[in-house]
């Protein structure tokens, strides 16, 4: 089973990396979105490896299905014809800057983790769903409620913006 887990980890990381590169390097917005969805899917696989199937399924339900489709909707609302969103290539110093900007935090985190490795379990243990729910409504009650308030505010704001635009026309 141990080797199987390593193989699965390899597959998921490949999916994540491939999706990420596709999201970043695609000139076409919809292709970039597909890359993003692929990455999110791979992350769901990693949750599965960490013995958190609930998180994995929620990741698919919310991110791969709902959020991706929302982004697709947003792209469609701002649609230039397919192929027309091609941009001219960027100069080399922009590319180099991007690579440095991406590498700097990665190196920093890698160094910190190397010097001071995180304490982790040898094998992941699955947390019972009931306990997860209990943690949300007992010790982390305030944080949980605050998140719902933020979401409500965001939703109300979106509705308000939509109505204002309609009146403005």
């Amino acid at each position: 089973m141990e080797t199987l887990a390593y193989v699965a980890f390899g597959v998921y990381t490949t999916i994540i990396l491939f999706g990420g590169l596709m999201a970043v390097f695609s000139r076409n917005l919809v292709r970039a979105l597909v890359g993003l969805a692929l990455t999110l899917f791979g992350v769901a696989g990693c949750y599965l490896l960490m013995a958190a199937p609930f998180m994995a399924l929620m990741q698919i339900l919310i991110y791969v299905a709902a959020v991706s489709i929302m982004i697709f909707f947003a792209i469609m609302l701002t649609k230039p014809p397919v192929g027309a969103e091609e941009q001219p290539g960027r100069p080399w110093w922009v590319v180099a800057g991007c690579i440095v900007a991406a590498l700097a935090p990665t190196m920093l985190i890698a160094r910190v983790l190397h010097v001071q490795p995180l304490v982790s379990h040898e094998h992941p243990t699955e947390i019972v769903l009931m306990d997860l729910g209990q943690t949300f409504i007992e010790p982390y009650f305030l944080a949980f409620e605050l998140i719902s308030v933020i979401l409500t505010v965001a939703m109300a704001g979106a509705v308000l913006l939509a109505f204002e635009r309609r009146q403005g026309q």
Partner: peptide, 19 residues
């Protein structure tokens, strides 16, 4: 989590229709 599994993967179909 069987029910959740079905609900989660059923949502992917729409993405295919969009694409």
């Amino acid at each position: 989590l069987g029910l959740l599994l079905i609900l989660a993967f059923a949502g992917i179909n729409v993405l295919a229709l969009c694409l």
